[in-house]
Amino acid sequence: MTEYLIYFNQQWVGDHDEEWFRGRAPLAKAVVDEMRSAGVYVFAGGLVEDVDEAVTADATSGTVLFTDGPFAESKEHLGGLAVVEVPDLDAAKVWAGKLAVACGWPQEVREFGSHPDAG
């Protein structure tokens, strides 16, 4: 089994009113519940929209320096993610498609590389 990251950038969401978002939440929750039932769920969650609340840890100088805000200014930032453990990319794409329909915006899929704790 392989782990895949399914995610979206906040800018892909588009402009919608609060009622529209409230209508999407149960649909997204249903997909996450389906992932759990299927035994593929590892993790899922949305991030706080305000990137100014981010903190960066940078050790490139040899000493860890913490600064408020994102590491780099960017027009796009991560909005939310799900991690699934499935047999292959085709299976991950099925879950990404379900999330895209439920959320109403695009989802991207990427396979995780090797884990640091893998033997």
Results as ranks from 00 to 15, higher is better:
Val42Ala: 09
Trp20Asn: 07
Asp50Tyr: 09
Asp90Asn: 04
Arg36Ala: 04
Gly104His: 15
Phe66Tyr: 14
Tyr4Ile: 02
Val42Thr: 09
Arg24Trp: 12
Gly113Cys: 12
Asp88Phe: 00
Asp15Thr: 10
Thr63Glu: 14
Ser114Glu: 06
Gly119Trp: 09
Asp90Pro: 00
Gly97Asn: 09
Gly39Asn: 03
Val64His: 04
Ala118Asn: 12
Ile6Val: 07
Asp17Val: 04
Thr63Cys: 02
Leu5Pro: 10
Leu27Phe: 02
Gln10Glu: 12
Trp105Tyr: 12
Glu49Phe: 03
Leu47Ser: 11
Glu76Ile: 02
Glu111Val: 00
Asp117Trp: 01
Tyr41Met: 05
Arg110Ser: 11
Asp52Ile: 03
Phe66Arg: 14
Leu78Gln: 06
Ala118Phe: 06
Ala92Val: 06
Ala44Lys: 01
Val84Glu: 04
Gly104Lys: 10
Asp17Gln: 14
Glu49Leu: 05
Pro116Asp: 02
Pro106Asn: 14
Gly113Tyr: 01
Gly69His: 01
Glu108Ile: 01
Tyr4Thr: 01
Tyr7Ile: 04
Asp50Thr: 08
Glu85Asp: 13
Glu49Thr: 09
Ala38Trp: 10
Thr60Asn: 12
Ala102Met: 14
Pro26Arg: 06
Leu5Ile: 03
Gly62Asp: 03
Gln107Ser: 14
Phe21Ile: 05
Gly39Glu: 06
Lys98Leu: 07
Pro87Cys: 02
Thr60Cys: 11
Glu73Asp: 11
Ala54Lys: 09
Thr60Trp: 12
Ala44Ile: 00
Met1Val: 08
Asp90His: 08
Ala25Gln: 08
Thr60Glu: 13
Val55Phe: 13
Trp105Arg: 11
Phe43Cys: 12
His115Pro: 10
Phe71Ile: 04
Gly46Thr: 09
Gly104Tyr: 15
Gly62Asn: 14
Ser114Phe: 00
Thr67Glu: 09
Gly46Cys: 05
Thr56Lys: 03
Lys93Glu: 07
Tyr7Ser: 07
Asn9Ser: 04
Leu78Gly: 02
Pro26Glu: 12
Asn9Glu: 03
Lys75Ser: 12
Asp15Phe: 11
Ala91Gly: 09
Asp68Ala: 08
Glu76Trp: 09
Tyr41Gly: 09
Leu89Val: 06
Val32Ser: 06
Leu5Asp: 05
Phe8Gly: 05
Ser74Glu: 10
Phe71Trp: 13
Val48Cys: 10
Asp50Cys: 10
Thr56Leu: 00
Trp105Leu: 12
Arg36Glu: 10
Pro87His: 04
Val109Glu: 00
Gly62Ile: 04
Asp50Pro: 10
Ala38Thr: 08
Leu5Gly: 14
Arg22Val: 08
Glu18Phe: 15
Gln107Trp: 08
His115Ser: 00
Ala92Met: 07
Gln107Gly: 06
Val40Trp: 11
Arg24Met: 08
Trp20Ile: 00
Ala44Glu: 08
His16Arg: 11
Gly46Ala: 05
Ala30Cys: 10
Ala96His: 01
Ala59Lys: 07
Glu76Ser: 04
His77Val: 00
Leu47Glu: 03
Phe66Leu: 15
Ala100His: 11
Val64Ala: 15
Val32Tyr: 04
Leu89Phe: 07
Lys29Asp: 11
Glu85Gln: 11
Thr63His: 13
Ser74Met: 11
Gly104Leu: 06
Pro70Leu: 02
Leu81Phe: 15
Asp52Leu: 05
Ile6Tyr: 13
His115Gln: 11
Trp12Val: 00
Lys93His: 08
Trp105His: 14
Ala38Glu: 13
Ala82Tyr: 06
Ser61Met: 08
